[in-house]
Amino acid sequence: MPVTSGINHVTTFTTDLDRMARFYEDMFGAEIVFERQATDGHPRTAIVELGGTRYVKFVEDPAYRAPHTTTAIERFGLAVGSLAILRELRERMAAAGAAIGEIERLPTQWVLPFTDPDGTPLQVSAHARPGDPAA
Rank of each mutant, 00 (worst) to 15 (best):
R87W: 14
T108M: 12
P121A: 00
F34I: 13
G6V: 07
E60Y: 03
A79H: 14
H68C: 12
R75C: 13
A84K: 14
G52P: 08
E88L: 07
A30T: 12
E102C: 04
H127F: 12
E35K: 13
R44C: 05
D26H: 07
H9A: 01
L112V: 10
A94L: 15
A21C: 14
E102I: 10
A30Q: 07
L83Q: 11
G81S: 04
L17A: 05
M20T: 15
L122Q: 09
P130D: 01
P107I: 03
R36C: 04
I73R: 02
D40M: 10
I73V: 14
G41Y: 06
F76S: 02
A46R: 08
D40L: 10
I73K: 02
A134T: 13
P117W: 01
G81A: 04
G6N: 03
I7D: 05
E25C: 05
T115C: 05
A63N: 12
T53L: 11
T120E: 09
P133Q: 01
I85E: 13
G41R: 06
I47N: 06
P121C: 00
R92V: 07
V48Q: 02
G119D: 02
G41M: 01
T69D: 08
G131V: 08
T12Y: 08
G131C: 03
A126I: 07
T115M: 06
A79F: 13
A135P: 13
P62S: 00
R129F: 15
S125C: 10
P113T: 01
E91Y: 12
R22I: 13
E91R: 15
G119S: 01
R105G: 05
L89W: 07
A94C: 12
